[in-house]
């Protein structure tokens, strides 16, 4: 693993941009999800809870999965991308349920 460590000052530009944009997506997504969660608490609207969960799975979770999997397991990139996409898929299902579900 040690030979694969990328120093931040030597990292290719697009790798840095990818991590940066993923971080921004996670940050902004979390802010919107937080407002949705507040909407759920203030208005007692369950659909807003599912929306908040969906937004987190769509934005924050892929970022966390990316960081966790690459640092802890040093897994192949295909696996990381697969897990990220599973998280996004579940997130979209949660938002679908928020829109169309009976609650």
């Amino acid at each position: 693993m040690s030979q694969n460590v990328v120093r931040i000052d030597e990292a290719p530009l697009f790798e840095l941009l990818t991590v940066g944009s993923l971080f921004l997506v996670a940050l902004i997504g979390t802010i919107i999800a937080y407002q949705a969660y507040r909407g759920y608490r203030r208005n007692d609207a369950p659909s807003m809870l599912y929306l908040a969960v969906g937004l987190l799975l769509l934005t924050l979770c892929p970022f966390l999965i990316n960081v966790a999997v690459t640092t802890l397991f040093s897994a192949e990139q295909v696996i990381t991308v697969f897990l990220e996409n599973v998280s996004r898929l579940v997130g979209l299902v949660a938002i679908m349920y928020s829109l169309y579900g009976q609650h």
């Binding site: 507040r38 909407g39 759920y40 208005n43």
Partner: peptide, 15 residues
């Protein structure tokens, strides 16, 4: 209106 309430109203309006 509070942002969270506005958001809720909009989202509930879409359902």
């Amino acid at each position: 209106e509070d942002v969270a309430d506005k958001f809720t109203r909009l989202w509930e309006g879409m359902r």
